[in-house]
Protein backbone atom coordinates (compact mmCIF):
# COMPACT_ATOMS: atom_id res chain seq x y z
CA UNK A 1 0.00 0.00 0.00
CA UNK A 2 1.44 3.37 -1.02
CA UNK A 3 1.89 6.31 1.35
CA UNK A 4 -0.91 8.18 -0.41
CA UNK A 5 -3.32 5.25 -0.05
CA UNK A 6 -2.55 5.03 3.68
CA UNK A 7 -3.05 8.80 4.05
CA UNK A 8 -6.42 8.63 2.27
CA UNK A 9 -7.59 5.73 4.47
CA UNK A 10 -6.68 7.58 7.66
CA UNK A 11 -8.28 10.78 6.39
CA UNK A 12 -11.55 8.98 5.62
CA UNK A 13 -11.44 7.22 8.99
CA UNK A 14 -10.91 10.55 10.77
CA UNK A 15 -13.87 12.10 8.93
CA UNK A 16 -16.09 9.12 9.73
CA UNK A 17 -15.23 9.13 13.42
CA UNK A 18 -15.49 12.94 13.61
CA UNK A 19 -19.07 12.79 12.31
CA UNK A 20 -20.00 9.87 14.56
CA UNK A 21 -18.66 11.87 17.54
CA UNK A 22 -21.87 13.93 17.31
CA UNK A 23 -23.78 10.91 18.62
CA UNK A 24 -22.01 11.28 21.95
CA UNK A 25 -22.08 15.05 22.16
CA UNK A 26 -22.28 18.15 19.96
CA UNK A 27 -18.70 19.32 19.35
CA UNK A 28 -16.66 21.76 17.22
CA UNK A 29 -14.86 19.02 15.26
CA UNK A 30 -18.21 17.77 13.97
CA UNK A 31 -19.23 21.30 12.96
CA UNK A 32 -15.94 21.84 11.16
CA UNK A 33 -16.43 18.68 9.12
CA UNK A 34 -20.05 19.67 8.47
CA UNK A 35 -18.97 23.10 7.17
CA UNK A 36 -16.34 21.57 4.90
CA UNK A 37 -18.96 19.14 3.60
CA UNK A 38 -21.37 21.98 2.75
CA UNK A 39 -18.60 23.91 1.00
CA UNK A 40 -17.28 20.96 -0.99
CA UNK A 41 -20.78 20.05 -2.14
CA UNK A 42 -21.49 23.63 -3.31
CA UNK A 43 -18.08 23.67 -5.02
CA UNK A 44 -18.89 20.36 -6.70
CA UNK A 45 -22.14 21.80 -8.07
CA UNK A 46 -20.34 24.87 -9.46
CA UNK A 47 -17.72 22.71 -11.21
CA UNK A 48 -20.37 20.36 -12.57
CA UNK A 49 -22.68 23.03 -13.97
CA UNK A 50 -19.79 24.94 -15.49
CA UNK A 51 -18.70 21.83 -17.35
CA UNK A 52 -21.96 20.03 -18.14
CA UNK A 53 -24.11 23.04 -18.99
CA UNK A 54 -21.93 26.01 -19.98
CA UNK A 55 -19.16 24.13 -21.77
CA UNK A 56 -20.82 20.93 -23.01
CA UNK A 57 -24.37 22.06 -23.75
CA UNK A 58 -23.80 25.68 -24.77
CA UNK A 59 -20.23 26.48 -25.80
CA UNK A 60 -19.39 23.27 -27.66
CA UNK A 61 -22.56 23.07 -29.85
CA UNK A 62 -22.53 26.83 -30.55
CA UNK A 63 -18.87 27.06 -31.58
CA UNK A 64 -18.20 23.77 -33.37
CA UNK A 65 -17.15 24.07 -37.00
CA UNK A 66 -19.63 21.50 -38.29
CA UNK A 67 -23.28 22.58 -38.06
CA UNK A 68 -23.02 25.07 -35.17
CA UNK A 69 -26.23 25.59 -33.16
CA UNK A 70 -25.96 29.37 -32.80
CA UNK A 71 -29.58 29.67 -31.67
CA UNK A 72 -28.70 28.14 -28.30
CA UNK A 73 -27.88 31.68 -27.17
CA UNK A 74 -31.66 31.96 -26.48
CA UNK A 75 -31.76 29.39 -23.62
CA UNK A 76 -28.39 30.84 -22.56
CA UNK A 77 -30.00 34.25 -22.07
CA UNK A 78 -33.02 32.62 -20.38
CA UNK A 79 -30.58 30.89 -18.04
CA UNK A 80 -28.82 34.15 -17.21
CA UNK A 81 -32.24 35.66 -16.44
CA UNK A 82 -32.43 33.25 -13.50
CA UNK A 83 -29.57 35.13 -11.86
CA UNK A 84 -31.75 38.25 -11.54
CA UNK A 85 -33.16 36.44 -8.48
CA UNK A 86 -30.07 37.65 -6.64
CA UNK A 87 -31.38 41.25 -6.92
CA UNK A 88 -34.97 41.56 -5.59
CA UNK A 89 -35.71 44.64 -7.71
CA UNK A 90 -35.16 42.73 -10.95
CA UNK A 91 -36.13 39.24 -9.79
CA UNK A 92 -39.39 39.34 -11.81
CA UNK A 93 -37.30 38.87 -14.98
CA UNK A 94 -36.44 35.33 -13.82
CA UNK A 95 -40.14 34.45 -14.08
CA UNK A 96 -39.86 34.32 -17.86
CA UNK A 97 -37.24 31.56 -17.73
CA UNK A 98 -39.00 29.83 -14.87
CA UNK A 99 -42.32 29.87 -16.74
CA UNK A 100 -40.66 28.21 -19.73
CA UNK A 101 -39.25 25.40 -17.55
CA UNK A 102 -42.51 24.97 -15.62
CA UNK A 103 -44.66 25.03 -18.74
CA UNK A 104 -42.49 22.55 -20.62
CA UNK A 105 -42.26 20.18 -17.67
CA UNK A 106 -46.04 20.44 -17.18
CA UNK A 107 -46.53 19.63 -20.88
CA UNK A 108 -44.49 16.43 -20.56
CA UNK A 109 -46.17 15.55 -17.25
CA UNK A 110 -49.73 16.03 -18.48
CA UNK A 111 -49.39 13.20 -20.96
CA UNK A 112 -46.89 10.89 -19.26
CA UNK A 113 -48.57 10.83 -15.84
CA UNK A 114 -51.84 9.69 -17.42
CA UNK A 115 -50.41 7.50 -20.15
CA UNK A 116 -47.52 6.05 -18.18
CA UNK A 117 -48.97 5.68 -14.68
CA UNK A 118 -52.75 6.03 -14.39
CA UNK A 119 -53.80 3.93 -17.40
CA UNK A 120 -51.41 0.95 -17.02
CA UNK A 121 -51.97 0.76 -13.27
CA UNK A 122 -55.75 0.84 -13.71
CA UNK A 123 -55.57 -1.66 -16.54
CA UNK A 124 -53.67 -4.14 -14.37
CA UNK A 125 -56.24 -3.72 -11.59
CA UNK A 126 -59.23 -4.47 -13.80
CA UNK A 127 -58.50 -8.16 -14.30
CA UNK A 128 -60.96 -11.09 -14.22
CA UNK A 129 -61.43 -12.00 -10.55
CA UNK A 130 -62.05 -15.63 -11.45
CA UNK A 131 -59.34 -16.79 -13.82
CA UNK A 132 -57.56 -19.89 -15.02
CA UNK A 133 -54.57 -19.30 -12.71
CA UNK A 134 -56.30 -20.88 -9.74
CA UNK A 135 -57.81 -19.94 -6.42
CA UNK A 136 -54.73 -18.14 -5.07
CA UNK A 137 -54.61 -15.79 -8.08
CA UNK A 138 -58.33 -15.04 -7.72
CA UNK A 139 -57.89 -14.31 -4.02
CA UNK A 140 -54.98 -11.96 -4.79
CA UNK A 141 -56.99 -10.21 -7.52
CA UNK A 142 -59.79 -9.57 -5.02
CA UNK A 143 -57.31 -8.18 -2.46
CA UNK A 144 -55.86 -5.86 -5.10
CA UNK A 145 -59.25 -4.51 -6.23
CA UNK A 146 -60.42 -3.89 -2.65
CA UNK A 147 -57.04 -2.39 -1.71
CA UNK A 148 -56.85 0.01 -4.65
CA UNK A 149 -60.44 1.24 -4.34
CA UNK A 150 -60.40 1.61 -0.55
CA UNK A 151 -57.04 3.45 -0.65
CA UNK A 152 -58.31 5.87 -3.28
CA UNK A 153 -61.45 6.48 -1.24
CA UNK A 154 -59.47 7.02 1.96
CA UNK A 155 -57.57 9.85 0.22
CA UNK A 156 -60.74 11.31 -1.30
CA UNK A 157 -61.62 14.28 0.89
CA UNK A 158 -64.23 16.05 -1.25
CA UNK A 159 -67.05 14.23 0.57
CA UNK A 160 -67.43 13.39 4.25
CA UNK A 161 -66.46 9.79 5.10
CA UNK A 162 -69.92 8.58 6.15
CA UNK A 163 -72.02 5.52 5.31
CA UNK A 164 -70.60 3.34 2.52
CA UNK A 165 -67.78 5.83 1.92
CA UNK A 166 -66.90 5.73 5.62
CA UNK A 167 -66.83 1.91 5.77
CA UNK A 168 -64.67 1.73 2.62
CA UNK A 169 -62.31 4.38 4.00
CA UNK A 170 -62.06 2.35 7.21
CA UNK A 171 -61.06 -0.73 5.19
CA UNK A 172 -58.63 1.54 3.35
CA UNK A 173 -56.87 2.63 6.54
CA UNK A 174 -56.30 -1.04 7.51
CA UNK A 175 -54.79 -1.75 4.12
CA UNK A 176 -52.70 1.41 4.33
CA UNK A 177 -51.39 0.48 7.78
CA UNK A 178 -50.17 -2.88 6.46
CA UNK A 179 -48.44 -1.15 3.54
CA UNK A 180 -46.91 1.50 5.80
CA UNK A 181 -45.75 -1.25 8.14
CA UNK A 182 -43.94 -2.87 5.20
CA UNK A 183 -42.52 0.56 4.35
CA UNK A 184 -41.33 1.00 7.91
CA UNK A 185 -39.64 -2.40 7.86
CA UNK A 186 -37.88 -1.51 4.63
CA UNK A 187 -36.92 1.94 5.96
CA UNK A 188 -35.25 0.36 8.97
CA UNK A 189 -33.44 -1.96 6.58
CA UNK A 190 -32.25 0.95 4.45
CA UNK A 191 -30.99 3.06 7.34
CA UNK A 192 -29.19 0.09 8.87
CA UNK A 193 -27.50 -0.66 5.53
CA UNK A 194 -26.09 2.87 5.37
CA UNK A 195 -24.46 2.38 8.77
CA UNK A 196 -23.17 -1.05 7.76
CA UNK A 197 -21.44 0.60 4.79
CA UNK A 198 -19.45 2.89 7.08
CA UNK A 199 -18.66 0.09 9.55
CA UNK A 200 -17.43 -2.05 6.65
CA UNK A 201 -15.09 0.76 5.71
CA UNK A 202 -13.81 1.17 9.27
CA UNK A 203 -13.33 -2.55 9.97
CA UNK A 204 -12.46 -4.07 6.61
CA UNK A 205 -10.62 -1.19 4.92
CA UNK A 206 -9.13 0.95 7.70
CA UNK A 207 -8.49 -1.49 10.58
CA UNK A 208 -7.86 -4.23 8.00
CA UNK A 209 -4.93 -2.20 6.65
CA UNK A 210 -3.03 -2.22 10.00
Amino acid sequence: MSGMEIFVLWLEAFITLAIFSFLYKDNPVYHMVESVFAGLSAGYYIGLYWKSIILQQLWEPMTRADNPKWWLFIPGIFGLMMFTRLWPKYSWISRIALAFVMGSTAGVFLITQLHGLVLPQMQKTMLPLVNSKGLEASFLAVIVVIGVISTLIYFYFSKEHKGFLGVTAKVGIWFIMISFGAHFGYTVMGRVSLLIGRVQFLIEDWIGSF
Binding site: T112, H115, G116, Y186, T187, M189, G190, S193
Partner: peptide, 18 residues
Protein backbone atom coordinates in the same frame (compact mmCIF):
# COMPACT_ATOMS: atom_id res chain seq x y z
CA UNK B 1 -43.84 6.73 -16.95
CA UNK B 2 -41.77 8.41 -19.68
CA UNK B 3 -39.26 5.92 -21.06
CA UNK B 4 -40.92 2.54 -20.61
CA UNK B 5 -44.44 3.77 -21.34
CA UNK B 6 -43.66 5.97 -24.36
CA UNK B 7 -40.77 4.10 -25.98
CA UNK B 8 -41.35 0.54 -24.77
CA UNK B 9 -37.77 -0.08 -23.63
CA UNK B 10 -37.76 -2.63 -20.76
CA UNK B 11 -36.65 -1.14 -17.44
CA UNK B 12 -35.26 -3.12 -14.48
CA UNK B 13 -34.40 -1.40 -11.21
CA UNK B 14 -32.16 -1.60 -8.18
CA UNK B 15 -33.37 0.84 -5.55
CA UNK B 16 -32.78 1.70 -1.91
CA UNK B 17 -34.86 -0.23 0.60
CA UNK B 18 -36.81 2.91 1.54
Amino acid sequence: SIVNALYGTPVGCGVTAV
